[in-house]
Design a protein around this nucleic acid. Structure first.
Lengths: 227, 227
DNA sequence: AATCACTGTTAATGTGTGTTAACCCGCATA
DNA sequence: TATGCGGGTTAACACACATTAACAGTGATT
């Protein structure tokens, strides 16, 4: 599984860059923005797994930003940072769907632990080695699609890698860029076309399974549908 | 949905009974136990959805209790209460899989908000996947409009996203701005015109359904009418 | 009634995707 | 060194999707 992507929005550059550095050191892919408006732009541009938002910020405060983000992605968890212990703020934040609330000054260690506690609930179970795909058993290690009373299908490495990603994102969009970076290490035009070719190949392998479908999400990526 | 069942283990009877009373008033089915050993017995006897454990307790402390509970139910979320701000304690607690940590003294309101934040993540999201639209079954995942004795209609991603929003707001106004932010990420003039085009497309798909109508609410947005 | 902003619809445009087949390259075998 | 094969990439063509343009129609306001 790839790195968790965090959107960090904090106007205090000292604290912001320190936090960013710390989070990166802890293995999170972290994007720091200095105000709510820039944070919103970043969110429109990229995909994130968690938001850490300062409440008091110029241009657009953390709560307003959270409201906007919520419309676009109602599922994403967020943590608010606030300098003042204001009860109404906390209440407001939680009602906006905050997953946690941290009062400055806080220890980075505690922030990290709270992030992990949230991700534990949010992210799906670990690195699965085998998946059920329709009637097939997909063994990601052996790169094999096995079905009762049928010759196993050998998958090539690329086929297998791609199918594994699709399985991990079952019924969710697997973004092109994400898959390209994960498998091809590079999201160039030709790699993207290459990926399309592999989607075709996987569809052929899976066309015997009526409950399974790989559908395209225009401009975003692909989705493995299973019923 | 039934009441959420909370196991509260706290040796300070004053605080314990106060909390219990408060949680019951807030609609939680709450069981108070005064030490870790009794807490464990209660857990063996009944089913709970959330645990709130004091760390410092006679007979069996909160951490030890959490370890025992974890073996029986690895999924259950818990919140630790502690009187002292001890960093090592917090660390230990989170490593045990704590979902949250509250330092005494705390406001009951904050505890409630933290409980709700955790339950929001824990209990399955009521995110509806399929809708009945006239005689059609609309599968938002597969992006399909299916009707008996008829070829299913494949919807494009945008068509599907928009219809899903309309369904969620059935018989209410789906505001332009909201839909634009949710689907197009941006409420510019051109995106708004694009949305109109999709409304036309959806109306065409649904014109076979006499009970279904997408009407315009001038200056506001659209409304999916179903009888 | 006149005006302006909002909406309905169709069609043109450019970009994204599906698919097949040709191509390239490394590797094992002869 | 040649040969064939498997895995992966590139090319080419057809088609689908989303946006934009253009024009017609509607509602609100004066």
């Amino acid at each position: 599984m790839d790195k968790t992507r965090i959107l960090l929005v904090e106007d205090d550059m000292n604290l912001g860059s320190l936090l960013k550095e710390y989070l990166i050191a802890k293995g999170f892919d972290t994007n720091l923005q200095v105000d709510g408006a820039k944070g919103l732009l970043a969110f429109k541009r990229e995909h994130f797994d968690l938001c850490i938002l300062d409440v008091m910020m110029p241009v657009k405060d953390g709560f307003t930003l959270a409201k906007d983000i919520r419309i676009m992605d109602p599922e994403i968890p967020y943590i608010f940072l606030t300098a003042k212990y204001m009860k109404t703020d906390i209440l407001k934040g939680f009602n906006l769907g905050a997953d946690d609330y941290i009062i400055k000054p806080f220890s980075m260690e505690e922030l990290l632990l709270r992030i992990e506690a949230i991700l534990r609930r949010t992210t799906k179970s670990s690195n699965q080695e085998t998946f059920l795909v329709g009637n097939f058993i997909f063994d990601t290690n052996k790169q094999l699609l096995t079905k009762k009373d049928a010759e196993p299908i050998k998958l090539t490495t690329k086929e297998s890698d791609l199918l594994k990603l699709l399985c991990q994102y079952s019924n969710q969009v697997l973004e092109r860029n994400y898959a390209l970076k994960a498998i091809w290490k590079d999201d160039s035009y030709f790699n993207a076309r290459s990926m399309d070719v592999y989607i075709t190949k996987l569809r052929k392998h899976l066309k015997s399974e009526p409950g399974i479908q790989i559908i395209n999400v225009h401009g975003k990526g692909y989705k493995l549908i299973r019923e």
